[in-house]
Simulated scan of single mutants.
Amino acid sequence: MIAIARDTYCEPDQLRLRDMAVPALGADDVLVRVEAAGVDQGVWHVVTGLPYLLRAAGFGLRRPRNPVPGMDVAGRVEAVGANVTRFGPGDEVYGTCDGAFAQFARAGQDKLAPKPAALSFVQAATVPGSGCAALQGLRDAGRLTTGQRVLITGAGGGVGSFAVQVAKAYGAHVTGVCRTAKTEMVRSLGADHVIDHTREDFTAGGVRWDLILDTAGNRSLTRLRRALAPRGTLVIVGGPGGGRVLQGADRQIRAMLLTPFVGQRLTGLMSTQPAADLRTLSDLADSGALTPVVDRTYPLERTADALGHLKTGEPAGKIAITIPPAGAES
């Protein structure tokens, strides 16, 4: 099979297209013939090995445990292990896996769900990581209830574009914060109000929200708390800062240390992608309540370009990689 790979942690422009062996299956594994793969900030972290904390989390201390990056996947089941009961060859699935940037990828059956019928493979591949982060950030960490006033920063990005739709599906009054070029897109997702952060500072207007989901990561805790109701909840999803060791996690840590001393709930989010939440997102997609926004697609050989576009911060919604069928490369 062909795949995008590297032997060491590196910058995205050092990724190379290679001919590699098809992954071997364990008893609980599913082999997926990949149709499309999603691109998000997590992929950039895994490729570069930053922050260093990520390496200790199982991705490999000195070099990548798996030379093929990519986690979010959509495709068809090629084969299953002896203990797999949920899927069979030919089933259309989506979820997370080891090495999505390849023609075949291995995934545990508990990390996959049937692909939403309403979505294409490209659309479905963009859902797992960002969709689960949005769902868990609002429903679990944020304890969202019907009628709450919710503010979502970075509403035009990957997690944010899903969060606007999930919050509306759960009956919230939603305000989205984004740059000028994305305001109409955020409004089309169902946001009740859209703030262009280049023209208006939402932390300075005196308005308070019950729940803030901060996916943009460029505002201080002090400013965010100013926009939060006295008993409101702030959920921080990643962000810059923290250097090469804690990159993206330092504000989450500071928020959790501060929350016992204030009336507001300040918390971070470490999302996962369980099959149950994938099924919840599938239900939302098939009901018409959730539609992924795909900014661009790239062929597998241009994965480095996809990651470069991601880091500009310009994509509206998500980016996907399309995978050529086995044999097409010859």
Rank of each mutant, 00 (worst) to 15 (best):
I4R: 00
T8N: 07
C10Q: 04
E11K: 15
P12S: 02
L15E: 00
R18W: 11
L31N: 02
V34H: 11
V39Y: 06
Q41I: 03
G42E: 03
V46Y: 01
L50D: 03
L54Q: 09
A56P: 05
A57R: 11
G58F: 05
G58N: 04
R62G: 15
P64H: 07
N66W: 11
M71T: 09
M71W: 13
M71R: 15
D72I: 07
R76Y: 03
E78I: 06
V84F: 06
T85Y: 00
T85D: 08
T85I: 00
G88N: 01
E92G: 10
Y94L: 08
G95Y: 12
D98A: 13
F101D: 04
F104M: 03
A107K: 00
Q109N: 07
D110M: 03
A118T: 01
A118M: 09
A124G: 03
T126V: 08
S130N: 02
G131N: 15
G131L: 14
R143K: 11
G147F: 02
L151V: 11
T153F: 14
A155Y: 05
G160I: 09
F162P: 05
F162Q: 04
A163L: 07
Q165G: 07
Q165Y: 15
V166W: 14
A167W: 14
K168N: 04
A169H: 02
G171C: 13
A172P: 15
A172T: 03
V174R: 07
T175W: 12
V177E: 02
C178E: 02
R179V: 08
T180Y: 04
H193D: 06
T198E: 14
T198L: 12
E200M: 14
E200T: 12
F202Q: 07
A204G: 12
I212D: 05
L213C: 08
R219E: 01
L221M: 06
V237G: 00
G239W: 04
G241Y: 01
G242S: 11
L246V: 13
Q247R: 15
Q252T: 14
L257G: 10
P260Y: 05
L278A: 06
T280R: 08
L281K: 05
D283P: 00
T291E: 13
V294S: 08
Y298T: 11
L300Y: 02
L300M: 15
A306Q: 10
L307K: 00
T312N: 02
G313P: 03
A316T: 10
G317S: 11
A328K: 03
A328F: 04
E329D: 10
